[in-house]
Nucleic acid binder design. Sequence first.
DNA 1: TAACGACCGTGATAGCTTCTAACGAACGGC
DNA 2: GCCGTTCGTTAGAAGCTATCACGGTCGTTA
Lengths: 220, 220
Amino acid sequence: MRQETAETGATPRERYRAQVRAEIKDHARRQIATAGAPGLSLNAIAKRMGMSGPALYRYYAGRDELLTDLVRDAYRSLAEDFRAASAPAPDARALAHALRAWALADPQRYFLTFGTPVPGYEAPEDTTVLAREVMTLMLDACAALPPAGSPGGPFAAHLEEHREWTGGHPAPPAVLHRALTLWTRLHGALSLELAGHFAGMGFDPALLYEAELDALTGDG
Amino acid sequence: MRQETAETGATPRERYRAQVRAEIKDHARRQIATAGAPGLSLNAIAKRMGMSGPALYRYYAGRDELLTDLVRDAYRSLAEDFRAASAPAPDARALAHALRAWALADPQRYFLTFGTPVPGYEAPEDTTVLAREVMTLMLDACAALPPAGSPGGPFAAHLEEHREWTGGHPAPPAVLHRALTLWTRLHGALSLELAGHFAGMGFDPALLYEAELDALTGDG
DNA sequence: TAACGACCGTGATAGCTTCTAACGAACGGC
DNA sequence: GCCGTTCGTTAGAAGCTATCACGGTCGTTA
């Protein structure tokens, strides 16, 4: 039978394994932060950890599995920041600022989750679950906003009949619409900024972001 | 001396060279459309063209140069579609629809221009010139819109002093703001749709796009 | 027409990558 | 103390970018 330690609930072997996996992820994070996802090299990680290339495959079946783990961590980290920004009460402005801070802290991490998808790579089921969790926090924040003057256009009516993605959230369609536009507009400004498309244009991206946020919280 | 043909103004050698380069680009386009930019392989292109790998280097110095050429073509193609949508008169709605059609026709081409940047790769000067051309058409379209009720917030005031990117466009700051939000909002909705982030959410991305467009042309 | 030079395609090579397979060593449970 | 699981190694296949040196071809020029 296996002997479990009190602290972690795992055998020493499993603890070692978990630690090595964490170390691998740490190197991968650093590597991705500077060279991006395509620059992630299992070989380089192994060498930097002082072991040979194939040894890594004892811990990760391949590049994709490592990337998936990083995506999972990224979503979890964003959800955590969102939860912190939602305390003591859901707040769309705080959420938006948390999102930008999270993105600027590690742009490649943002691209890993919301950037260009790798064609061959299929996101596993549980990442969409994590994404839904983030979405739920956005819905809560938008539900807490003062209701907009307009009752919502034809798209809000469309959303009334297609609310599978809300996970049973009781928000009215106008709030669903607001949450979606909050997401897409902030992502639009943020992703173009991070991708460097505003470079050399002269204006301050932070002010554009703030202007979008004003438009959203004032009247979507 | 070089002998120029009447039709193309180039020697037969140069015509052949241009034709081969075009064929390479064609294969690259097809390859990128299915496997994305990281899936672009010079070797595979060469083999599919019936020649050996290194032969390609006679026509393109490397992967980056080929990618740059594709980016250039993409911008040119978008600018062309925008010009067509701006006839007979600048029209923001027509422009937006042209953008979405252009993106859906080849999502990887969209990502090539507006997607996650490759960290090692630096876009050459002339692509920014092409991007400015696209931006100018957007500015023209926004200038032709009926003026918004609001005179513009603090960001519009900021833009008044930072209008280098307009290339001397005489539009008032409110129009500059509108053009920027047109770009970022449409990109936000479009890029998330193309990246598959709306998959399984149930609603129709086209309606979301249309709703954003309504919000923009009605009152930004 | 004959020769020269620019250009094109080839195979060989270096160095990198992911990933599989087979072997030896170390660790932990009984 | 034995024995099996697990770990790390080296070797190797297949792929990629990119460079080099060589031979063939084409166009021009003497």
